[in-house]
Amino acid sequence: MTDSTIWWVLAGLVVGAELLTGTFYLLMVSAGLIGAAIAAHLGVSLPFQIAVAALLGGGLSVALRFYRKAAAAKNPLSKTDGNLDVGARVMVDAWATDGTAQVKYRGANWVAMPVTGETPTPGMHQIEEVVGSRLLIKKL
Rank of each mutant, 00 (worst) to 15 (best):
G123W: 02
P114H: 01
V103C: 01
M1L: 11
V29A: 12
P76T: 05
A70K: 14
M28K: 00
R106Q: 12
I38Q: 05
G16A: 06
V111W: 09
A63W: 10
F66L: 06
K138Y: 07
I127Y: 04
R68Y: 08
T97K: 07
R89Y: 09
N109Y: 10
L77T: 14
P122E: 00
A37H: 05
L140P: 09
G117S: 05
G123M: 00
V111H: 03
K74D: 12
T80K: 11
L33M: 15
H125Y: 13
A72E: 05
S4W: 15
L64A: 13
R65S: 05
P47Q: 14
L33D: 11
L42R: 13
L136T: 12
K74L: 02
G43E: 05
I127Q: 00
A54N: 13
A40Y: 06
T2D: 11
K138S: 14
G32V: 11
P76K: 00
A96R: 13
M113T: 15
P47S: 12
A36I: 11
V86I: 07
E18N: 07
S4H: 14
F24K: 01
T97L: 08
L33C: 10
L84D: 06
L20D: 06
V131D: 14
S78Q: 07
V103P: 03
A54W: 13
F24T: 11
T23P: 03
G107E: 10
A36E: 09
L33N: 11
I6E: 11
G59M: 07
G59E: 13
A37M: 05
I137T: 06
V131C: 04
A63Q: 06
T100R: 12
E128R: 08
V15Q: 03
V103A: 00
Y105E: 00
T100S: 15
A108P: 12
I38K: 05
Y67L: 15
Y105A: 00
G32L: 11
T116C: 03
R65C: 09
I38P: 13
A53D: 13
W7D: 05
L84A: 05
D98F: 02
G59K: 03
M1G: 13
I50P: 15
G16R: 02
T2Q: 07
V86L: 00
V130H: 03
S30D: 08
L55G: 13
L20K: 02
G16Q: 06
L136V: 10
F48L: 15
E128T: 07
L19C: 04
I137N: 07
D3L: 06
P76L: 00
I50V: 15
S61G: 10
V62W: 03
G12N: 06
